[in-house]
């Protein structure tokens, strides 16, 4: 009897904890959603509970008409797409070569990749700015994309090379005996076997530019070239009380697609994340 009561008490506690935690997790998100539909501009006009006052879509209208939100969104989308494409193609090729070919300095190159990926790109930002200036690519999307892609190569090459190595070499040797060239072997044999990893690579390089702040802030100086990260930061920085509801509307329009992308890729993500752990 005593034991049973203890056990019930334990589960009541666990459920209580979970419910409390769920509330803590959900509150900021719910508050932002409520903010997006709240009538009134300021933070002070919000309820403490995440329920909008006189629900309205005014904030979205204001966002589209009084700020450059749409062009920021387009910029970020453009940068994200090109970055995904470039990163995926270059990393795929580089990792394939590292996995399947023997050449001089291969080992040295792999080690330097590993060391390079440890340093945050922000460390070299002054130099990056000067280099882009020198190349005439300052305040230019291509400049930013090149920096992103270059920064993505070392780590992702390691990741993908490790994955390619698990595909038996006998398969591509068989393809080569059948007369397939390097490119055909790669496209027809290797690529189909690594699609989950490629999807993961594509998703991570797609999400990167939406969140990054330092580089676009430094490189893209003109207002029309701003990315969402920089635009939203400036909307909210020091003026959180005036612009809150409009910011919330803008944030919602970014978060929704992300949660969807995440939900679709969740299974891959978990598998690939735990693949990073040490395996027996």
């Amino acid at each position: 009897m005593m034991k049973k009561a203890m056990s019930i008490a334990r589960y009541v506690l666990i459920y209580a904890f979970f419910i409390l935690l769920a509330l803590i997790v959900l509150y900021p998100i719910a508050f932002a959603i409520a903010g997006a539909f709240n009538k009134g501009k300021s933070l002070a006009s919000m309820n403490v509970l995440p329920i909008p006052n006189n629900p309205t879509t005014d904030n979205f209208t204001r966002l589209f008409t009084t700020t450059n939100y749409i062009s920021w969104y387009k910029n970020s989308l453009f940068i994200a797409c090109v970055n995904t494409l470039l990163t995926t193609v270059i990393v795929l090729i580089t990792a394939y070569i590292f996995s399947r070919f023997k050449f001089r300095f291969k080992k040295a190159a792999m080690v330097s990749f590993l060391i390079l990926q440890m340093f945050p790109s922000a460390v070299g930002m002054i130099a990056i700015y000067i280099i882009l200036n020198r190349l005439g690519l300052s305040d230019n999307f291509m400049g930013l994309i090149l920096v992103y892609t270059a920064g993505n190569i070392p780590y992702n090459t390691w990741l993908l090379k490790g994955y390619f190595d698990t595909i038996p070499k006998s398969i591509d040797e068989a393809a080569k005996i059948d007369g397939a060239g390097n490119l055909t072997t790669f496209l027809k044999v290797i690529l189909p076997n690594t699609l989950p990893m490629v999807a993961f690579l594509a998703v991570t390089s797609f999400t990167q530019p939406w969140m990054d702040f330092i580089l676009p802030r430094f490189i893209l100086r003109s207002d029309k070239n701003k990315t969402l990260a920089v635009g939203l930061f400036e909307m909210i920085n020091g003026r959180s009380n005036d612009n809150f509801t409009m910011f919330a509307a803008g944030a919602l329009l970014i978060a929704v697609p992300f949660v969807i992308i995440f939900a679709i890729n969740q299974k891959y993500l978990v598998r690939i994340m735990s693949a990073g752990a040490v395996k027996e």
Binding site: S121, V123, G124, P154
Partner: peptide, 10 residues
Amino acid sequence: MISFFVVIPL
């Protein structure tokens, strides 16, 4: 790309 945008900046 790595030499220009990663190594040289570092």
